[in-house]
C-alpha cells in the first residue's frame, strides 16, 4: 500500500438539493511514496475534488482516505496534523501572498506549525532554492515579483512545511513555456532531493508525460486508466475516447503503427519518437 490511498471513495456536491451532483464514484487510487503522480482529466472529471479530499478539505460521502494506512477522518486523527502532512497548492496560488516580504510569506506555514526560528529560516532558504527563487528576492515584497516568481514563492510556502505529500493543482496554469518548465523542474528537484511524494493535477498530457512517474487518468468521476507513464500511454485509444487530447507525437506514431510499421506503443515525447525513428531508419539501411 502506498503512502496515500483513496479507497472506494465517492463524493457528492450539494447532497439532497436539486443541484446534487456526484463528482466521484467509487474511486480507488494508490499514491506511491517518493513518486511524482500526475492526475489528468477534463474540467469536471473530478480531479480537483480528489485534491481537496486528499488533505481533508472535503469529506468523502463514502469510502476512506488513508494516510500511511490511517483513515484521516478517524476521530483520533487531528485534521490539522493531516493538513501539515499533506500540503495542498491551489490553482493560481500567487493570489494568496500577503506578507511584507517573500521570506515572511514562505515562513507563514512553518510558523503556524510552531517551529523555532532557526528551523524556519533553514526551511525558507531551502524551499526557495527548490522553487528556483534567488536568495536576494527573499527580502523583497512579494508584490514586486514577476508573475512566474510570485507563483514560485507561493509554492515554496507550501514546500517549506515539508509535507510528506505535496499536492499541486495546475501549478503551471497560465504561464509561458519557460515559466512552466522552471516550475515543473523545481518540483522535480524538490522530490529528488527530499524524496517526498508529489501529486500533480493537470490537463496537459504533454507536461505530465515529461514530469511524472505515474499517471492517473480521470473521466466523469472515475479512474479511467492508471499506472506508470509508459503503461498509461499504451492505452492511448482509451484516453482519446474520454475526450482528452493526446500529445501530437503520440497520435502520429499511433497512426504509423496502425499502418503496420513496427513501432512500440506509447511514444509520447519528441526524444522517444526520435529514438524510434532512428532505430527504424537505421534498420532500413542495414536491411
Amino acid at each position: 500500500m502506498g503512502i496515500l490511498t483513496l479507497e472506494n471513495v465517492s463524493y457528492v456536491y450539494s447532497p439532497s438539493t436539486p443541484f446534487e451532483k456526484e463528482a466521484l464514484h467509487d474511486v480507488n487510487i494508490d499514491f506511491t511514496e517518493g513518486k511524482i503522480t500526475g492526475i489528468i482529466g477534463h474540467t469536471g472529471s473530478g480531479k480537483s475534488t480528489v485534491a481537496q479530499l486528499l488533505n481533508g478539505l472535503l469529506k468523502p460521502a463514502s469510502g476512506k482516505v488513508l494516510l500511511d494506512g490511517c483513515d484521516i477522518f478517524d476521530p483520533s486523527v487531528k485534521l490539522s496534523d493531516v493538513r501539515f502532512r499533506v500540503g495542498l497548492v491551489f490553482q493560481y496560488p500567487e493570489y494568496q501572498l500577503f506578507e511584507e516580504t517573500v521570506f515572511r510569506d514562505i515562513a507563514f506555514g512553518p510558523t503556524n506549525m510552531g517551529l523555532d526560528e532557526a528551523e524556519i529560516k533553514r526551511r525558507v532558504i531551502e524551499s526557495a532554492r527548490f522553487a528556483g527563487l534567488d536568495e536576494e528576492l527573499l527580502g523583497r515584497s512579494p508584490f514586486e515579483l514577476s508573475g512566474g516568481q510570485k507563483r514560485r514563492a507561493a509554492i515554496a510556502g507550501v514546500m517549506a512545511m515539508e509535507p510528506e505529500v505535496i499536492v499541486l493543482d495546475e501549478p503551471a496554469a497560465g504561464l509561458d513555456p519557460r515559466g512552466r518548465d522552471e516550475i515543473l523542474s523545481g518540483i522535480r528537484r524538490y522530490r529528488d532531493e527530499k524524496g517526498n511524494t508529489v501529486i500533480l493535477i493537470s490537463h496537459s498530457m504533454e507536461d505530465m508525460a515529461l514530469y511524472s512517474d505515474e499517471l492517473v487518468v480521470m473521466s466523469r468521476g472515475t479512474v479511467l486508466v492508471s499506472g506508470t507513464v509508459d503503461e498509461v500511454f499504451r492505452q492511448s485509444a482509451l484516453i482519446e475516447e474520454s475526450g482528452l487530447t493526446l500529445p501530437q507525437i503520440t497520435r502520429v506514431f499511433d497512426r504509423l503503427r496502425a499502418d503496420g510499421v513496427n513501432i512500440r506503443d506509447g511514444v509520447y515525447t519528441v526524444e522517444d519518437g526520435y529514438r524510434e525513428m532512428l532505430s527504424l531508419l537505421k534498420g532500413n539501411t542495414n536491411a
Binding site: 509561458d176 513555456p177 500529445p247 502520429v252 519528441v270 519518437g273 526520435y274 532512428l278 531508419l281
Partner: peptide, 20 residues
C-alpha cells in the same frame, strides 16, 4: 527565446539535422 515548437516540428528538425 523561451518558446515551444510543435512536437512534430521538433522531431523533423532533429531528423533533418542528422541528414535525413
Amino acid at each position: 527565446l523561451g518558446l515551444d515548437v510543435p512536437q512534430v516540428t521538433h522531431l523533423a528538425h532533429l531528423l533533418a539535422e542528422d541528414g535525413y
